[in-house]
Nucleic acid binder design. Sequence first.
DNA 1: TTGTAAGCGTTATCAC
DNA 2: GTGATAACGCTTACAA
Lengths: 339, 339
Amino acid sequence: MSVTIKDVAKAANVAPSTVSRVIADSPRISEKTKRKVRQVMKELGYHPNFIARSLASQSTNVIGIVFPASGNMAFQNPFYSEVLRGISEGVHQKHYGIQLTTGATEDEIYEDVVRMVQGRRVDGVIMLYSKINDKVIRYLREKEFPFVVIGKPYDDPEQITHIDNDNITAAKEATKHLLNLGHRRIGFIGGGKDLMVTVTRLEGYKKALEEYNIPIREDYIIHEEFLLSGGKHGVLEIMSAKEPPTALVVADDIMAMGVLRTLHLMGYDIPNSISVISFNNTLFSELSSPPLTTVDINILHLGIEAVKNLLAIIENPKEPTKRVIIPHKIIVRSSCARI
Amino acid sequence: MSVTIKDVAKAANVAPSTVSRVIADSPRISEKTKRKVRQVMKELGYHPNFIARSLASQSTNVIGIVFPASGNMAFQNPFYSEVLRGISEGVHQKHYGIQLTTGATEDEIYEDVVRMVQGRRVDGVIMLYSKINDKVIRYLREKEFPFVVIGKPYDDPEQITHIDNDNITAAKEATKHLLNLGHRRIGFIGGGKDLMVTVTRLEGYKKALEEYNIPIREDYIIHEEFLLSGGKHGVLEIMSAKEPPTALVVADDIMAMGVLRTLHLMGYDIPNSISVISFNNTLFSELSSPPLTTVDINILHLGIEAVKNLLAIIENPKEPTKRVIIPHKIIVRSSCARI
DNA sequence: TTGTAAGCGTTATCAC
DNA sequence: GTGATAACGCTTACAA
């Protein structure tokens, strides 16, 4: 039906292999032949069949993107749109395509990845999350399939190329920001305990308190989902302590939106009766009232670097393992005040 | 390297074609053979190579998603995350994969689509936007390639299967909502003039005014980008009219966020000194202050229906053209008041 | 019910 | 420099 390499070969009076070489711009073909063949390709409206090429060359020029499994509500979080934007940018110049997992549960996503990998649909994979004991990662490592993770891998981080922020330091700085404003009763609201971002940000929070010789209180540490509702539940719980905190470190912007709103409903005035600092600097933090003081983690670059490093691995499987740290920066807005 | 259909055939003492038939669950194979072959597949850890299958069967089980070209800032708008969620949901059960365009400009996206289509990488395409004189649509129609559009096609809408809201009626109702609250000076802030959502929503706005015998004022109609900044510019312009409007119809939530914020900075009190109604009912509208009265267009179902209809076309190219209208509903919050 | 063999459209390995 | 020809891993007539 559609025009193939053979049609071009016939019309140009050369062999199919020659046409293939012209496509690959092989230096072993004379300029004259190249010109002729290209001319014919244009006339006939030839476009290479990538599927056939993939089968023959054992590579697809497509990379797979693995989303986390929060009932697919993950999409709600602008973090993913933004990181996808970065990935698109990185991938586009290199003429790679991207394919997404579509599963909603952990098992479905695992199946998606297996299908992508075993089905030879992709040349490599970018993991958009990192959690403790993840079977997807285990699988990818077993297969020795090219992949990078955005975030800090739980097992053997020195053996897995990953793109991350220094979340421990970032959280430490965020907490110190509060400390420096005079707060001493500071709470932490994070996502699931098994998510590495939560783990590392919690660690930074604890370190800051330790530096100030402030004892860690378990009732000041709450884990909820990275959703609006998670923020709501978290704040209800944490503020029911006998001595409620005067400031909150919230591990995610969207969660912080829930926190802000609930606090407001409870009658708190932000930042005067309670301060809130959060993470990610997505559009939400700019738009909330009051605008959120938040840690900008440069999501776009997480995506861009992920692609860059994954492609390096794909092109050279012996590429040494790397850890890339994207710088962060506290963006001071109006959700924190001196106590 | 990895286990193929031949390995399975050998191990199970059958022909490759038999294995192939077992995979396809052909009724012409005895249960006994099926059991045996499946057993061997499990033992050997066989997984079909989709690329090879695609080449042989001339179908990929992948659909392409085409994003609009607003310098890729489109991702900023939760509309796309949400519609993608719907698409994922629809696609997943059918075991289809999704591939995204990654281009940022109109030309890049066009190239992406051509590569997807000519490269036989996808079986069909979902357009996530609709604009006047779009070369992507023209190309898809020329090729007679399966596609559906989310939104109303500009040319020959009766010849293109599309999933849409009744945006004219929706905008009419939104405007009447304002009219019923006593407003008579009502402005419209929409996206680019070439976007069909803008065109249809503007039309609905005009119709409502006409019904109330209110003359259309050109200085009350503004076109800006569907971005935060678009809302800001739009409101600055519209409020500089000699007789500024007392109410605004804004064609998009995120734009409305910009409108709200700018209005606030200008000293307006919403909804008491000016009312705002918008569209889409994304998370933003719930979180803004005041919460936005907005038209819920059921984005999730736009995505789900798009997939359903596209798959129908892929499976049966003779499938009649359809127009699917997803119901809308005004969600009353706190951004509109009686004048 | 199962096997044989010819594609699917490329790339890659030999020759010449 | 260019041309045959054999993969790549599967599907699908056509035979048996």
